[in-house]
Each structure stands twice: as C-alpha cells, then as structure tokens.
C-alpha cells in the first residue's frame, strides 16, 4: 500500500557552476497528491524534466514506477503523463485532432482512440469546443485540453507543472477540482508544482517546500507551518487612528503610540512588536487578539483595524530566508 511510486535519490542538476537541484531525496507514495512548492527558479521544473528524461541529472537518479528515467525514458513516459507549464497545441488542428494525434502517438487503436478522446473531452468540459481550432482556445481551455492530453494514455502518475498559472481564480478552483476528481477515480499519483500555496494547499496531501534547489521542508501544510513557526504561530496586525480626531487627547500621537507599544509588549505571549507609524505588527505564541484589542482601547487610541494573519507561502519563504540570513 505504502509503496513509493516516485523515488528521488541524491538527484543533482548543475548548469555550469549554478546548482539548480541540490541532492534531492524524496519518495512519493502511491495514490498521493504531492505538491512541490517553491518560488520561481527554485528548480521545480528542472526536477520534473529529469523525471521524464527530458534532461539528464548531473548526479543521482530518479525512478518512476521503479523505472529509471534517465536510462529508460520511453518506458517512464508510458506510465507518467506530463502537463508542461503553458502547454501548447497545434494551432491549425482542432482540439479533437490534437488529442487524436496524441492517442496515435501512444499507439492506441483508432476506434478506441476516438471513443476515449470523445469521453475525455467531455470530462474536461470541452465537448462543445472540440471542433474548434486549438489556436482559438483560451488559456484555461488549453490547460484543460492539456489535462485530457495527459489522461489519454491512462497514466499511473500525473505530473503537472504550474497547472494554475495564468488562469483566473474561478478557473483555478474548477481546474484543481477536476484534477482531484479524475485522479481519485483512477487512483493516480499526482505530483504538481506551484508557487501558489493557497491554490494547492487544499488539494495536496503532502507538500514539499523547494527553495534554491533544496527541499527545505516536507509534510502537510499544518505541520509545515508548525515546523517553521513553532515559537510564534500567530501574526496580528492592528491599525489605530493617528489623527486623534474627537478624542480630545492632551498628548501628541507619537507619545500615545509609544506608550501603547510598550504596553503591548507586556502582554503574555507576545514575541515581537513592530510599529510602522499607526500600524502594529505583533507576533505571538498564542492567539491573543482579544488582549491586544483591550490594550488598544484602554490606551485611549481609536482602533481602526485588527486582523489575525495566516501564514502563507510568502511568510514561509520569508521565514526561511530570515533563518538562513541569521545562521550566516
């Protein structure tokens, strides 16, 4: 059950002196939806290219379904479907013809191919556009056609490179739902790369955080933020009114704010306070939003906004770089 489908062993790719992927060790289990998260240029695409034998690793190896991708790419490509970032189709062929060509490349007999293409076009919601030239498809439609193209060979593993890039938010949700539904039905293993944590955190069983060619954290989103923010899992942002209108205050705003800042520091659980004129940014080990609100109201300043922020990928990146900077 827990057999691993994709296995990276010390995978390394160097371009000259630049290391794109640095000794990656990772195994992805059967039936899992795995998200490879990282900023642009982190080496996600390079890792995927090596999985399909489209580029050779400098060192180490990657196996898909037990087959080495570098020495046996064709057998890997029989089992794994790949949707490249910004997938392209032959513009002067219709969506149907494009898929038929892919089916033929997979040596699927003509009759079976026709049925399958029709079925898949229906599944991705393009059946009424199937006679339209692919050159006239929108970005989202192309992406869905790309998904159908991946599924045509009934893959065991689906690899998606930035599948949500350039689609509007509604389209993103639909597309991700589609991926989850289709992969759950067929019990596929899915590996998708993205730099949008929020878009993929919903569907991924597990994510790996990939920065600068290194896998820096691994697990589901909750464990990931706990791992990185174990001391200060909460960020609270509080804004106060700096105009002091209608308060009849006897002291200037700056003084009041400084007093408030030191008062907040005394609250139990506060780790740090950063003030940017009228905006307080507080990190804390507990959820102390209520205490902060009380303190602000008590200080005689007017509370304008109060929000508890959740950690997103950006914060995780920032945190990572902060830690890196500190350790140096």
């Amino acid at each position: 059950m827990d057999s691993s489908v994709i296995e990276f062993t010390d995978l390394t790719k160097k371009y000259g002196s630049f290391t794109a992927v640095d000794r990656l060790n990772l195994s992805i289990k059967e039936g899992e939806i795995f998200g490879l998260l990282g900023p642009n240029g982190a080496g996600k695409s390079t890792t995927i290219l090596m999985m399909l034998g489209l580029t050779e690793p400098t060192f180490g190896s990657v196996t898909v379904c037990g087959i080495n991708s570098t020495t046996n790419p064709v057998d890997v490509k029989k089992k794994a479907g790949y949707l490249p970032e910004d997938v392209g189709f032959y513009d002067d062929y219709t969506g149907f013809e494009n898929l038929m060509y892919s089916a033929r490349l997979n040596s699927i007999p003509e009759n079976e191919a026709k049925e399958k293409v029709t079925y898949l076009l229906d599944r991705v919601g393009l059946s009424d556009q199937s006679t339209k030239k692919a050159g006239k498809y929108s970005r989202g439609m192309r992406q869905r056609l790309g998904l159908a193209d991946v599924l045509i060979k009934s893959p065991e593993v689906i690899i998606l490179d930035e599948p949500t890039l350039g689609i509007d938010p509604k389209g993103v949700n639909e597309f991700l739902d589609l991926i989850v539904r289709l992969s759950r039905e067929e019990k596929n293993t899915v590996l998708l790369s993205s730099h949008h944590l929020h878009q993929v955190q919903k569907i991924c069983d597990r994510v790996g955080l990939f920065v600068g060619g290194k896998l820096i954290a691994l697990g589901d989103i909750k464990t990931l933020s706990q791992q990185l923010f174990s001391h200060e899992p909460f960020i609270i942002e509080a804004g106060v009114d700096s105009s002091l209108k209608g308060l009849g205050a006897d002291r200037p705003f700056q003084h009041l704010a400084e007093d408030l800042e030191s008062q907040i520091r005394t609250i139990q659980g506060v780790v740090s306070v950063v003030r940017d004129n009228d905006l307080f940014r507080i990190t804390a080990s507990d959820d102390i939003t209520g205490d902060i609100a009380k303190a602000i109201v008590g200080s005689g300043l007017q509370l304008k906004s109060l929000s508890r922020k959740e950690y997103g990928l950006d914060d995780i990146y920032n945190r990572y770089f902060e830690e890196n900077g500190n350790s140096k």
Binding site: L54, V74, K78, A80, Y82, L83, G88, F89, N106, K153
Partner: peptide, 9 residues
C-alpha cells in the same frame, strides 16, 4: 508543443 509531444512515449 515540443515538450508536450515529448511527454508521450
């Protein structure tokens, strides 16, 4: 289209 075609066996 190249990378898509190349992803087929």
């Amino acid at each position: 289209t190249m990378s898509r075609i190349m992803s087929h066996p």
